[in-house]
Nucleic acid binder design. Sequence first.
DNA 1: AAGTCTCA
DNA 2: ACAT
Length: 221
Amino acid sequence: MQDLFSPPADEGQMPWERIAIGHQACVLRGFALRWESDLLGQVQELVQRAPFRHLRTPGGRQMQVAMTNCGDFGWYSDQRGYRYTATDPLSGQPWPPMPPAFAALAAQAAEAADLPPFAPNACLINRYTVGTRLTLHQDEGDARHPIVSVSLGLPAIFLWGGDQRADATQKLPLQHGDVVVWGGVDRMRYHGVMPVKEGASPVAHPLLDGQRINLTFRRAS
DNA sequence: AAGTCTCA
DNA sequence: ACAT
């Protein structure tokens, strides 16, 4: 078993690139590639304990993105509103614990983004099938800590907006292994995902067959 | 408004 | 623009 907190031996073969998208926000292209095997294996196990499901927004609409969580808290939404829960309302059981490799990736991404030490206690796992989108929104949770967002599988166009919903948006192409980090003054910026287009999966894996999987790390409180 | 529809 |  490999030490999850040490870089793999072939780290030099997996370069990444940092692109600024704000004062305290950036895209880390390819940053998650060296965790690919761990991430996919762990997500498969997590989903058996806490399956993907379509949540309802307070407006009563069903979300296109299917979601589940791991960690001490999970993001949840229903007609009563958004909140973080310690247990999965579907099972009544605590959300599955956050795998050490997840926490390590999130911490190292925040460090690579020149943000203060980050220890997430919530990981939202999103599944986008072809045609699925996510409209502009702000991430809840403790805004003193950043958001780390990991893209796996099909590519997507990330919408990166401002502090107001009506602010102009940039379209950022995200590929398998890319990580977006936003904190500090950029923590509450609106963001979303354009409808995911059909395509060939960049990696042969059941989880990524015709799908995009996104991991979003944060501190709920 | 973490959604969907309609119009220009 | 619109609703729960």
